Simulated scan of single mutants.
Amino acid sequence: MTFANVGTLETQPGQREAVVAILTRSNPQLAEAGCLHYEVGTSDEKPDTVFVTELWTSAEAHQASLQLPSVRGAIAEAMPLLTGQMDGFQYEVAGSPLRD
């Protein structure tokens, strides 16, 4: 069953675009690890927040991806730009009218 991870990352003032740049770099390893969908977004209403929506083949695939060197590198690069305030939720996807 598909696993969803949806979250927000609070950035240091003025660092939102730098975090977006890190998170949106091409990373073919994510697809190889089981990532089906990875979208990064922003909202003018929250100028220091980055939104991330991920779909994975499984919760285990998502967890394993956190050990990939490319992912660990991106996390290490982004951490100094974040406040440490993160929020979100995870769930098993029940279905979609867009897929069989």
Score class of each variant (00 low, 15 high):
residue 19 V to Q: 03
residue 87 D to C: 00
residue 24 T to S: 07
residue 73 G to T: 05
residue 55 L to P: 00
residue 71 V to C: 00
residue 93 V to S: 05
residue 64 A to F: 04
residue 49 T to S: 09
residue 37 H to R: 10
residue 89 F to P: 01
residue 35 C to S: 15
residue 35 C to M: 12
residue 19 V to P: 04
residue 86 M to D: 01
residue 40 V to N: 10
residue 26 S to K: 06
residue 10 E to L: 01
residue 7 G to I: 02
residue 57 T to I: 06
residue 51 F to N: 01
residue 60 E to C: 02
residue 25 R to N: 04
residue 39 E to K: 14
residue 32 E to A: 15
residue 54 E to Y: 05
residue 88 G to H: 13
residue 19 V to Y: 06
residue 94 A to E: 15
residue 1 M to T: 15
residue 15 Q to N: 14
residue 70 S to P: 03
residue 54 E to S: 04
residue 14 G to S: 11
residue 93 V to Q: 13
residue 5 N to F: 11
residue 42 T to C: 11
residue 9 L to C: 06
residue 52 V to D: 05
residue 61 A to V: 11
residue 45 E to F: 12
residue 100 D to R: 04
residue 8 T to Q: 13
residue 27 N to V: 04
residue 52 V to M: 12
residue 88 G to Y: 08
residue 71 V to Q: 05
residue 43 S to Y: 07
residue 16 R to S: 02
residue 14 G to K: 07
residue 26 S to G: 07
residue 20 V to P: 05
residue 33 A to C: 11
residue 59 A to H: 07
residue 27 N to C: 15
residue 32 E to V: 08
residue 36 L to E: 14
residue 36 L to G: 12
residue 22 I to H: 07
residue 7 G to W: 09
residue 18 A to C: 01
residue 71 V to G: 00
residue 49 T to E: 13
residue 75 I to V: 15
residue 7 G to Y: 03
residue 81 L to Y: 03
residue 89 F to N: 05
residue 20 V to N: 12
residue 59 A to F: 00
residue 71 V to T: 10
residue 79 M to Q: 11
residue 97 P to H: 13
residue 6 V to N: 12
residue 17 E to M: 10
residue 92 E to A: 15
residue 31 A to T: 14
residue 30 L to W: 03
residue 80 P to C: 00
residue 57 T to S: 09
residue 90 Q to D: 08
residue 77 E to I: 00
residue 75 I to T: 14
residue 10 E to C: 01
residue 60 E to H: 09
residue 18 A to V: 00
residue 40 V to F: 14
residue 86 M to C: 05
residue 55 L to F: 15
residue 2 T to L: 12
residue 19 V to A: 06
residue 11 T to F: 04
residue 54 E to T: 07
residue 28 P to T: 10
residue 28 P to A: 09
residue 78 A to D: 12
residue 38 Y to G: 00
residue 30 L to S: 03
residue 5 N to H: 14
residue 37 H to A: 04
residue 77 E to V: 02
residue 35 C to A: 15
residue 54 E to F: 05
residue 28 P to E: 08
residue 56 W to I: 03
residue 55 L to H: 13
residue 11 T to V: 09
residue 44 D to A: 14
residue 59 A to V: 03
residue 35 C to K: 01
residue 40 V to M: 10
residue 17 E to N: 09
residue 6 V to H: 06
residue 16 R to A: 11
residue 51 F to Y: 13
residue 16 R to Q: 10
residue 71 V to I: 11
residue 78 A to C: 13
residue 52 V to F: 05
residue 82 L to M: 09
residue 29 Q to R: 13
residue 12 Q to F: 00
residue 81 L to E: 07
residue 84 G to V: 08
residue 37 H to Q: 09
residue 98 L to D: 12
residue 82 L to N: 08
residue 68 L to T: 08
residue 53 T to P: 00
residue 97 P to V: 12
residue 25 R to G: 03
residue 21 A to M: 07
residue 24 T to H: 11
residue 100 D to E: 15
residue 31 A to L: 06
residue 22 I to C: 08
residue 83 T to F: 01
residue 57 T to V: 11
residue 5 N to P: 00
residue 100 D to T: 10
residue 7 G to K: 12
residue 61 A to F: 05
residue 41 G to P: 05
residue 2 T to V: 13
residue 98 L to P: 04
residue 78 A to H: 10
residue 27 N to M: 14
residue 33 A to Q: 14
residue 76 A to D: 15
residue 56 W to Q: 05
residue 5 N to L: 09
residue 83 T to A: 01
residue 61 A to Q: 02
residue 27 N to G: 00
residue 40 V to Q: 11
residue 95 G to R: 00
residue 79 M to K: 12
residue 89 F to E: 10
